[in-house]
Design a protein around this nucleic acid. Structure first.
Length: 714
RNA sequence: GGCCGCUUAGCUCAACGGUAGAGCGCUUCGUUUACAUCGAAGAUGUUGGGGGUUCAAAUCCCUCAGCGGCCACCA
């Protein structure tokens, strides 16, 4: 044995050993208790980051359960990550001076597919470096034919159940990415803008009404002016008409409670086609919506003389014209929040677009009941309230994306609709197999929806699609899964949706427990980000200190669900602990009778009375440690467990007991040797879920090269 | 504006009703081979401020302050 623990000597070897032995292969063992975790699928084309390393919680649970003798399965898969991947791929295209518009749909899809396939193994290799005991033998990917089929089936069921609908609504559109986004995918940013006052002349009498706006160019699409019904200033004007400047349209002054009397002038221009609030007001008052900005980010023909101008050019032109006409009043600086594309950072345009939506209320209701009834447990507990609130406030989900890289929506529009031959509602039908004719009017002329599903629509089904595509037996045995472990930042985007879709489709909750981990921060408590330059690359850490150190550092004395601070000091501390552990093992091992030099003194089988007491004390203490260990492991207090083991192994077992018994051990007292070895081995079994490589390496030193701690039961 | 979390030794954090703990750092001492990535001894805290409940509060309640996060609105 080396005098130091050298990770590089063992890590790769042991990863291969575990894989060859098939210890983590998901095989049904009917006589054992099933324990299943589905890995939150990482993007298929990116490098590992610390967020992935946090999934070490899952490995800890899996290894612990396995050692307990449960039938474990940790399902491996990667995600196609729709817009993310297409965005990365388009950057590659750009380098070659091309864009996505240079290719046919099918060609572009195939190119991205090939690109992703090339990169698919990166993630597997990197997760193995972390020591993750996943079942890598059965990888899942959303574009797998059998998964696509289930996703299509889900959509059809939702359609048949009346839970999807196609509607023209205001969506968050990025004119740069060329697609709409759900409300969760819009980032808001404080920005200093300008609030302009604009006068709208009254039609039937002298005078005007002044509105305040941050977006003068949308005036071209105004279809009403709204004031608060309680606002005394405007009471007389309600119901009267004004002329929209520049475009000359006559619109009415209406009343709605949504208007804040104190803000601006208390009178608001309403552009239902380009503002979420205005859309709502428009719905309530049956206003027209006139779209003056197109999906290309330019003014439409409804913008009159401004057609073809970009949004900013149109704004300048409108302001100039208003000024010339003397209709522009006071202007002032105004800080407000602007929605930006989370992907490319461009300002999001709310635009009316016909899309597929899922009716959330009925789905959310069932999910809330399940959470309230405790069919799903949430750890840490404080997130339970959050989850219920999230479900309660979930609005209808826009699942259409105008990108190629995704699962295409299996919805077809019957062309006969125009002639009112097909009576099917809105002319749309859904078919899992490629249809040959419309099921309603039997016409052969129809077209498939060009759009693909939001990525989260397939990931929202991940627990059951991954198991169902592994066979009925696997699904029946392992579903509902045991734990869903993920970051609390995607409680809304992912966990809530898995619950809703899982319950609706399978009739069961997709997982019995949700365990949420926090963020990794630097030593100043700052979020890690490329721009701050404080990002820690887990692969570098593994190179420097080994995977065990990284894992232990993310876990040591942390509170479940809280953010984790990762510093060099902590990693050095963990490395030192690993080394201490190694040397405890080495010391005990080298004092085994067969390893001792022949010329040592006589072996006295009976320890002296005082040493015997020491041994008894040690064993008693170990019992207490063991009891606490299982209690805390089952209570998801993993950081605590590692802290306890660290304290016991180093400061009790090594500093007290080993020091006291050292001389006897060196003399060759076999009882003491046995007792210390037994205690030590038990400790490394406890420690194994946290520090898998080193403990397995030590185990093999004592038990033989072909042995594994994973076959051990505590 | 609504909700949630945090504030404990120089630093990073544990303890969550019964005499405040760990790691790192600091001080002093110690190496004829288990480990200097080590060992021994030690210093350091009116547990953010104020009030309350209790025999007993870092821990429960109220309140104030600061930090962080999520959600909603911003015409």
């Amino acid at each position: 044995m080396e005098s130091k623990y050298i990770p590089a000597l063992f890590e790769q070897k042991l990863s291969s050993f575990w894989e060859t032995k098939g210890y983590f292969k998901g095989v049904i063992e009917k006589d054992k208790k099933p324990f299943c975790i589905i890995l939150p699928p990482p993007n298929a084309n990116a490098d590992l980051h610390l967020g992935h390393a946090m999934m070490v919680y899952e490995d800890i649970m899996i290894r612990y359960r396995k050692i307990q003798g449960d039938n474990t399965l940790w399902m491996y898969g990667t995600d196609h990550a729709g817009i993310e991947t297409q965005f990365v791929f388009e950057k590659h295209l750009k380098k070659e001076g091309k864009s996505r518009f240079d290719f046919e749909r099918n060609v572009l899809f195939q190119m991205i597919f090939d690109f992703v396939s090339l990169n698919k193994n990166i993630m597997k290799n990197q997760l193995q470096k972390l020591g993750f005991g996943l079942d890598y033998s059965n990888p899942k990917f959303p574009m797998d034919e059998n998964i696509v089929k289930i996703v299509h089936t889900t959509f059809k069921k939702l359609f048949d159940d009346g839970l999807t609908y196609r509607a023209k609504k205001l969506v968050n559109y990025c004119v740069n990415c060329g697609t709409s986004f759900s409300d969760l995918e819009v980032d808001y940013e404080e920005r200093e803008g300008t609030l302009w006052n604009i006068n709208y002349p009254l039609r039937d009498e002298k005078g005007s009404i002044t509105v305040a706006t941050t977006r003068p160019e949308t005036l071209l699409g105004d279809t009403a002016i709204v004031v608060n019904p309680k606002d005394k200033r405007y009471k007389k004007l309600i119901g009267k008409y004004v002329i929209v400047p520049l475009i000359g349209r006559e619109i009415q002054i209406i009343a709605d409670d949504a208007v804040d009397i104190k803000f601006g002038t208390g009178a608001v221009k309403v552009t239902p086609a380009h503002d979420h609030n205005d859309w709502e007001i428009g719905q309530r008052h049956s206003l027209l919506h006139i779209q003056v900005i197109g999906t290309d980010g330019k003014m439409t023909k409804d913008a009159g003389e401004y057609v073809g101008l970009t949004i900013s050019k149109a704004r300048e032109a409108v302001l100039l014209s208003l000024k010339e006409k003397g209709l522009l009043g006071e202007e002032k600086k105004h800080v407000h929040r602007v929605g930006r594309c989370y992907r490319c950072k461009r300002v999001i345009e709310p635009l009316p677009k016909e899309q597929w939506f899922i009716s959330i209320k009925p789905l959310a209701q069932k999910a809330i009941e399940a959470v309230k009834k405790g069919e799903v447990e949430v750890y840490p507990k404080r997130f339970k309230k959050d989850l219920i609130r999230i479900l309660d406030n979930f609005i209808d989900w826009n699942i259409s994306r105008q990108i190629v890289w995704g699962i295409r929506i299996p919805a077809y529009k019957c062309a006969e609709m125009k002639n009112e031959v097909c009576q099917h509602e809105k002319g749309w039908f859904v078919s899992i197999e490629k249809p040959t004719n419309c099921p309603h009017c039997h016409s052969e002329i129809f077209a498939q929806d060009e759009d693909t599903f939001d990525t989260w629509f397939s990931s929202g089904q991940w627990p059951y699609v991954t198991l169902q595509t592994s066979g009925d037996e696997m699904y029946n045995h392992f579903y509902p899964t045991s734990v869903m472990e993920t970051g609390h930042d995607i409680l809304r985007a992912w966990v809530a949706r898995m619950l809703m879709l899982g319950i609706h489709i399978t009739g069961k909750v997709p997982f019995k427990t949700v365990f949420l981990h926090g963020l990794v921060r630097d030593k100043h408590g700052q979020k890690m980000s490329k721009s701050k330059g404080n990002v820690v690359n887990p692969l570098e850490v593994i190179k420097t200190y080994g995977a065990d150190v990284l894992r232990a550092s993310l876990m040591f004395e942390t509170k479940e669900g809280s953010d984790v601070v990762l510093t060099d000091e902590k990693m050095i501390g963990m490395r030192n602990f690993g080394n201490k552990l190694w040397n405890i093992g080495r010391f005990i091992y080298m004092n085994r009778p067969e390893n001792r030099e022949k010329n040592t003194e006589n072996i006295d089988l009976k320890p002296p009375v005082d040493k015997k007491k020491t041994l008894e004390k040690m064993e008693k203490e170990l019992e207490a440690v063991k009891k606490n260990y299982h209690k805390n492991m089952n209570g998801y207090k993993f950081g605590h467990v590692l802290g306890d083991l660290h304290a016991f192994i180093w400061h009790r077992f090594a500093d007290i007991y080993l020091e006291e018994l050292k001389e006897e051990l060196k003399k060759g007292n076999i009882d003491i040797q046995n007792s210390l070895e037994k205690t030590f081995l038990e400790c490394i079994v406890f420690l194994h879920p946290f520090i898998p490589f080193e403990t397995e390496a030590l185990w093999q030193v004592f038990k033989g090269e072909n042995e594994s701690i994973l076959k051990q039961m505590v």
